[in-house]
Write a protein that binds this DNA or RNA. Structure first.
Length: 570
RNA sequence: GGCCCCGUAGCUCAGCUGGAUAGAGCAACUGCCUUCUAAGCAGUAGGUCGUACGUUCGAAUCGUACCGGGGUCGCCA
């Protein structure tokens, strides 16, 4: 058991004992939670807890008084050398060194850590970039975020299906087809017309047309088959980029296949029955000129009932489905597959959509048990020399994900895209991530690992498992060694929280911190030869090597979850 | 205007979801390579946590209002 669990168990037992003495209502304590954390300072002991401050009211005591009562019990614990009470009511705990050595043994023995989550079947939808062009840096953020999240959720024991929803129907695909056809026409007849405003600009689609001509000029025009072909070509390119980013989806769901007439009719009926959709007139949007506004009757969702500003269209006046409508169908389809949890990763620009879709889905399935989370990823600004690189999708000239990957590599890209909480914008500066120094966190972490491996190699010892169990670790007595052990013990709870809060950046932060502590430990050897890892004394050397090995194991495991390379030497 | 996100050192950001004297990196200054990887380490300096109230033993963290920045608000995609 890790120290956090060990102490929480201990403290809870003490609390219960004190409560039973006093006949205090147990219910009261349920909504209170106390912390056990690594002390920030040496004088605060190894570990601190705020338990007395959290519960002082329940006991009608001052925090200090309660701390004293708890501490009287706590001090009886064999593993604890001493524990002290400080100012507002913290209890600072000092363990015997052996306790930490045992923690290291425990860490060593873990092959499959049991996170203690109830099994869940999760559908995680991410990327879902429209097949009308290449992906850009914004897509990369959602892609890496979603993919890493999936790995984290799998790590803690969930079943995760990685899904890509292909918007291969509707007006945008018609537009795509018209664009390609336009270029084909130009190429075929050697014309040089300007591209009409209502088509997709940019060299990418032009190149596709050229390729189509080169490989096969008998593609049928203006029909479904042709559209399918174009979507297929673009999806192939998107998948190619994703693969380079180490992203492989388990399933690709086609909007076209899902939004069948039959389903549309059934959903319409259901919505009307539930009294949350109707044929009617939409109010004039605030940012549309009054004289340009034409009132037309069509099928609307009663979003106002769910706190929206106005009711939103489900079916257009020309009888085509809106994205909203086909999205509802798509999510209904997901729920039929018996997922316990749906997670969608969208760009923030879809923010206005969240409430609508959630309320619709929950309203249609009142008796089903499931959770539906939508995480929004904020903007990514590409920077060079401290200046934003202007991106204009309108002109079709934008920096593609491909370009960025080629420049900085997938490791840097993956690390950066998740190292910040998803609701914060990222200024992605090329210069920094081309550097190979501390400013570049990826290299800093990889370098820590490479140093670990290097020293294990040069030591000449073969640390296989059987030998490790018989080792005497009592030579690990330096503060930095204990600090390393404590942080290693934290690894699993970091992963656990990353999964719980859907926040992968907790792992990159952890990795940076752990690397920092390790580099610092390493640096001790430069100041003082007796503090090197390899020293004259065989026992000390072996103990330290074990510690280093576990540091390297944890870094490797973390990087594996993040799908970032972990070079043995640099 | 409505809704949402952000505001922490000169710059880029952490802050374990209410705890102790708010932490890192960069930039600046000072030390450390006859040395297990100096792609590194150690140190100095740098703060009214946007502002103001409020909640309580205790607030960067929670609430309200305001200020500043961004996003979004069509049958767009």
């Amino acid at each position: 058991m890790f120290f956090q669990e060990f102490l929480k168990e201990k403290l809870t037992a003490i609390l219960e004992k004190l409560i039973s003495k006093k006949n205090i209502d147990l219910l009261k304590q349920n909504d209170l939670k106390f912390n056990v954390e690594i002390s920030q300072k040496k004088e605060f002991g190894d570990v601190s807890t705020n338990i007395a401050m959290v519960y002082s009211k329940v006991f009608d005591l001052s925090p200090i008084e309660l701390a004293e009562q708890i501490n009287n019990e706590l001090e009886k614990t064999n593993e604890i050398e001493k524990s002290e009470i400080l100012k507002p009511g913290f209890i600072n705990i000092f363990f015997f060194d052996k306790f930490w050595h045992d923690q290291l043994f425990f860490l060593m023995g873990i092959s499959n850590y049991e996170y203690g989550f109830k099994k869940k079947n999760i559908c995680l939808e991410y990327v879902s970039a429209n097949p009308t062009g290449l992906m850009h840096i914004g897509h990369a953020r959602g892609a890496v975020f979603g993919d890493t999240l999936a790995s984290i959720l799998e790590e803690v024991g969930y079943e995760v299906n990685r899904e890509y929803y292909i918007n291969d129907a509707g007006e945008q695909i018609n537009k795509l087809e018209r664009t390609i056809s336009f270029y084909l026409e130009q190429e075929n007849n050697n014309k040089k017309k300007e591209l009409p405003d209502d088509l997709y600009p940019g060299s990418y689609l032009k190149d596709i047309s050229k390729n189509i001509l080169k490989t096969n000029n008998e593609y049928p025009k203006n029909n479904e088959e042709f559209k399918d072909k174009i979507v297929e070509i673009i999806m192939k390119d998107i998948k190619k980029d994703l693969k380079k980013l180490k992203i492989n989806h388990d399933s690709y769901i086609s909007e076209k296949m899902i939004a069948t007439k039959d389903r549309v009719e059934r959903l319409k009926k259901r919505l009307i029955d539930l009294n949350i959709a109707y044929y009617g007139y939409q109010e004039k949007p605030k940012n549309v000129d009054a004289n340009k506004w034409e009132k037309k009757k069509h099928f609307l969702f009663s979003s106002k009932k769910f706190g929206d500003d106005s009711d939103r269209a489900l079916i257009k006046t020309n009888n085509e489905l809106t994205y909203f409508m086909s999205d509802i169908i798509y999510h209904q389809e997901k729920l039929e597959k018996k997922y316990d949890l749906l997670i969608n990763i969208w760009g923030v620009d879809h923010f206005g959509y969240v409430k609508r879709l959630k309320s619709a889905i929950y309203a249609i399935n009142p008796s089903k048990k499931f959770d539906f989370e939508i995480k929004l990823t904020s903007l990514v600004n590409l920077m060079k020399n401290n200046e934003k690189i202007k991106m204009s999708k309108r002109s079709g000239n934008y920096v593609t994900l491909r370009d960025v990957m080629n420049e900085v590599g997938t490791d840097v890209l993956r690390f950066m895209m998740i190292s910040r909480n998803c609701d914060k914008k990222i200024d992605f500066d090329f210069e920094i991530f081309l550097q190979k120094n501390k400013d570049n966190p990826v290299f800093y972490v990889q370098y820590a690992y490479a140093r670990c491996r290097s020293i294990l190699k040069t030591s000449g010892y073969d640390l296989d498992k059987k030998k490790l169990k018989d080792l005497d670790l009592s030579y690990l007595i330096l503060d930095d060694e204990k600090l390393l052990i404590k942080n290693l013990c934290n690894f699993y709870s970091v992963v656990k929280n990353a999964a719980l809060f859907l926040e992968p950046h907790r792992i990159t932060n952890y990795l940076y911190d752990l690397s920092k502590i390790f580099h610092s430990y390493w640096g001790l050897g430069n100041q003082n030869k007796t503090m090197r890892i390899i020293v004259d004394d065989k026992n000390i050397t072996l103990s330290r090597l074990v510690l280093v090995k576990i540091v390297s194991d944890i870094i490797k495991k973390s990087l594996k979850i993040l799908k970032i390379n972990c070079p043995e030497s640099m």
